[in-house]
Simulated scan of single mutants.
Amino acid sequence: MTVAVSGSTSPAQQSAPDFPIFCRPLFAGFPVVFLLWLVLCQVAIVTPVHAAENVFTSTTAIKEETVRFAGEGTLFLKGPVDPYLTGTVVTAGLFGLTYLFDEKIRDEFAGSHHGVMRGVTDAGNAVSNPLLHLGVAAAFYGTGALTDQVKVMQLGEEMGEALLLADGATFVLKGVIGRGRPYQVDSSTSYRPFQFKDGYDSLPSMHTASSFALAHVFADKTDNFYGKAACYAAAGLAGFSRVYQNKHWASDVVLGAAIGELAGAAVTRYRSAPAGSVTVAPMAIGGAPAVALLGKF
């Protein structure tokens, strides 16, 4: 491991974006989120007041959502060992192999980006915006609640829950690990852990995690092979775009994809569990350690 040292500006640093990390996604996704908001407002105006029970109007719905999300979170945390231990080993091997070639992969995509690939990866970056994804999930949930379409509302719930798990995990890991982004540092082994610095939040890729979480939720809704393939192809484009445009190392994308898939799987597994299934989760009551039984009854 090496530590980044201030000095002359490297070519990678010169290509750093003008906006801070948390501003860029907001600007990129704002037009689409705003459009979705307008559509939702229009639905609210013309729809009779027969809204389905939801977290905006019902304390019961809030309690149910809290229990459900806790159960999904427990499955998410246990997932790498149970039941996906083999997948975890394979992912670790792929991550390690990609990590060794991170700098070569970056150099392969270095240079002037233009033409078709530039346009494709610009689109990939735009549609993989985590804030945009949350806006879409909120639009599905709100529209379903207002129009009393329970399936639409539940799809929004699943999307939102998977995104919160994936984005929350990657947000924490980014700051804790503190890996330098490829446009910020020359070496793929430059770290500033626990400093939560802009430009040192590369590992894992949140855009990729968010995209794969949504891909899993949507793929779970269809039995058609081509439909599932399309979902994951879109998520894969998101990851490729982050590497191609020098936003992330390739290994950042590998880990992000694994986290997103794990988050999506936790949500769909919990919802498909038969009634009566339970899981144990740690908790605290009045500051004292305890355990809770979470499940569907």
Rank of each mutant, 00 (worst) to 15 (best):
V3H: 07
G7L: 10
S8T: 06
P17K: 12
P17Y: 14
D18F: 12
F19I: 12
F22G: 06
C23S: 15
A28W: 06
V33Y: 03
W37Q: 11
V39N: 07
V43Q: 12
V46M: 15
H50I: 07
A51C: 08
V55K: 09
T59K: 11
A61Y: 04
K63D: 08
T66W: 08
V67P: 00
F69H: 03
L75Y: 00
G79L: 09
V81D: 15
V81L: 08
P83T: 13
Y84K: 14
V89W: 04
V90F: 06
G96K: 07
F101S: 05
K104H: 05
R106E: 08
D107A: 08
A110W: 11
G111W: 06
S112Y: 08
H113N: 12
R118I: 02
V120S: 03
D122G: 03
G124I: 07
N129M: 06
N129S: 11
L132K: 06
G135L: 05
V136E: 08
T143F: 03
Q149D: 11
M159T: 02
M159G: 03
L164Y: 10
A166M: 06
A166D: 05
D167N: 10
D167F: 02
T170N: 10
V172N: 03
V176M: 12
V176S: 00
V176I: 15
I177G: 00
R179F: 14
Y183M: 05
S187D: 14
S190K: 04
S190G: 01
Y191S: 05
F194P: 09
D198S: 08
S202F: 04
S202R: 12
L203S: 05
P204C: 05
A213L: 04
A215E: 01
F218L: 12
A219I: 02
D220M: 10
D220V: 03
K221I: 05
D223W: 07
K228N: 08
A229I: 04
A229N: 03
Y232D: 01
L237K: 06
A238H: 01
F240M: 05
S241Q: 07
V243C: 01
V243Y: 01
N246V: 03
H248F: 04
S251K: 00
G256C: 03
G276C: 12
G276Q: 14
V278M: 01
T279F: 00
V280E: 15
G286A: 04
G286Q: 06
G287S: 11
G287Q: 15
F297H: 15
